[in-house]
């Protein structure tokens, strides 16, 4: 009953990779993620791919199918021609981990930088009263399943890595809009924050985020543009601005609004092993903590410890020198020349 279809799947990691061809069986009513699973079960057991719910609710299986950012579980095979080649690649905006899996840490970093809901000080739990019409706008944005397709498709970071520092992306603009429109949120400067720290001004409203959103959230029309307009209220309204000049409010606010901090970690890695065989791209393991005694202290006395001398501060499972393969640094040897 199934037919053989031609798939091209990107396989590789940060050292490089390419599109590999597969002939795979496809049955009626299947989606692309089903086919990826069949590949795993039959031809490529170690093909890396994220997925969870397989129902378009968790937003894990984001990938690019024939060049378009999609959820694998929401792309029906019946949308392709019988003899059409289906090309599946990982998201192209984020660093690659392996095969179809990318490191989406960028989004979590931005999430942490976005100020959280500020509960009103005078209300106890259970005393919140909100009207449905007032929560509806924010509810639309809370439909977000965090598939990060909008973050991936946005050309501001997709085509310009250097903007990642200053630009939070559509997902966090709708978060800012959600909180700014929240009837009980007690924080008043979300618009200023969006403009100054999240890089709202980078958006040029080309609406790709709205186009790819699997939840059909009107990201641009209902969140980004209203936020831009709210910023206009505050920042570009000449009358308000003049008033601020006179009362010197602007200087107070500028203090709190400097460009966003750097990503938590942006190690400068090279893609390929250098001439000296050092793998620059290797991820460094966290610093090791040494074993402690039951009081939480390092055992310093030989009498109470199972070996002579102090334990290694790097833990027992590390022996020196480390094999060169494990290193991702190289002595500069600047004295050599």
């Amino acid at each position: 009953m199934g037919t053989k279809r031609h798939f091209r799947v990107w396989r590789g990691d940060e050292n490089g990779g390419d599109l590999q061809d597969y002939q795979v069986e496809v049955n009626e009513g299947e989606v692309v993620l089903d086919v990826i699973h069949r590949l795993q079960a039959t031809q490529a057991p170690d093909l890396a791919c994220r997925w969870n719910c397989k129902a378009g609710k968790c937003g894990s299986c984001s990938m690019e199918i024939n060049g378009r950012p999609r959820l694998g579980c929401m792309t029906r095979m019946s949308t392709f021609e019988e003899n059409e080649t289906v090309t599946v690649t990982p998201l192209r905006t984020f660093p690659i981990v392996r095969d179809l899996v990318t490191d989406v840490e960028f989004n979590y970093v931005k999430a942490r930088e976005t100020p959280a809901f500020a509960p009103p000080a005078d209300l106890e739990p259970g005393e919140y009263r909100m009207q449905q019409v007032d929560v509806e706008r924010s509810q639309e944005f809370r439909k977000c399943i965090e598939c990060f397709l909008c973050q991936n498709v946005c050309h501001v970071v997709r085509d310009h890595e250097e903007n990642k520092r200053a630009f939070s992306g559509p997902r966090y603009f709708i978060r800012a809009a959600e909180l700014d429109m929240h009837p009980l949120d007690a924080k008043g400067d979300r618009k200023e924050y969006a403009q100054a720290q999240q890089g709202l001004g980078y958006c040029n409203i080309t609406k790709c985020c709205t186009e790819v959103c699997p939840e059909h959230i009107k990201i641009t029309d209902n969140a980004i543009i209203p936020m831009k307009e709210r910023v206009v209220d505050r920042r570009y309204d000449p009358i308000v601005k003049l008033g601020r000049r006179i009362f010197r409010r602007d200087q107070l606010e500028e203090q709190g609004t400097r460009p966003g901090p750097l990503l938590a970690q942006e190690p400068s890695h090279h893609a390929e092993p250098g001439a000296d065989g050092v793998k620059w791209n290797r991820q460094v393991a966290q610093g090791q903590a040494a074993a402690v005694d039951e009081n939480g202290r390092l055992p310093l006395s030989e009498f109470t410890f199972d070996r002579a001398a102090a334990p290694s501060p790097f833990g027992d499972d590390v022996t020196f020198p480390l094999p060169p393969d494990d290193l991702n640094y190289h002595h500069s040897n600047k004295w050599d020349t």
Binding site: E14, G17, G67, I96, T102, N281
Partner: peptide, 23 residues
């Protein structure tokens, strides 16, 4: 096999796909 493209200095490599688009 293409090697990974590095879009900017200091960033970790993305998937090595050279095509401008696969659409």
């Amino acid at each position: 096999t293409t090697t990974a493209t590095r879009p900017a200095a200091g960033a970790r490599p993305r998937a090595a796909i050279l095509a401008k688009t696969l659409r």
